[in-house]
Simulated assay, not measured.
Amino acid sequence: MRFIKFTGMVRAKLGILIPCRIAVSCSCGKPRMKLYNLDNSPYSARVRILIRQRDLPVDIVPPPVALRTDAFAQRFPLAKLPQLELDDGRSIGESAVILRYLNDIFPGTSPADPSPEARARDGMLASFADTHLAPALFPLFASLIGRADVGVESQLDLVRLQLQHLEALLASWPGDIGEPDVGDICLATVVAYTLEVGGALGAPDLMSGLEIANAWWNGVRQWPAVEQTLTEMLEAHRAFLAGL
Rank of each mutant, 00 (worst) to 15 (best):
V61K: 03
P82W: 10
A66W: 00
V58T: 05
F128K: 05
F128H: 10
V65A: 10
T109F: 11
P107I: 07
L78R: 15
K80D: 03
P64V: 08
P107R: 04
D122I: 01
G108W: 12
R121K: 09
P114M: 03
A112E: 15
A120V: 12
R121W: 02
D70F: 04
R119S: 12
E117S: 11
S110I: 14
F128D: 05
R90L: 11
Y101I: 03
D113K: 13
F106C: 05
I98F: 00
A79Q: 10
A66Y: 00
D88V: 10
R121D: 07
E117A: 14
P77A: 14
L86R: 10
G93M: 07
R90K: 11
F128N: 04
P107V: 07
P62F: 00
A112H: 10
D87F: 01
S115I: 00
P116S: 07
P107E: 01
G108K: 02
D122W: 01
V97L: 13
M124I: 12
A73M: 13
N103Q: 15
F72Y: 14
A96M: 12
S110F: 15
E85V: 06
E94I: 05
T109I: 02
E94R: 06
D59E: 15
F76P: 03
S95C: 07
A112N: 10
A71K: 14
D87E: 15
S115K: 09
R75A: 13
D122K: 00
Q83W: 09
A66M: 09
L99K: 03
D113G: 05
N103D: 15
T69V: 02
T69I: 05
N103C: 13
F76Q: 01
E85L: 12
R68L: 10
A126Y: 00
A73V: 11
F72M: 00
L86A: 02
R75D: 04
I105P: 05
P63C: 10
I92C: 03
A79P: 00
E117Q: 13
P111D: 01
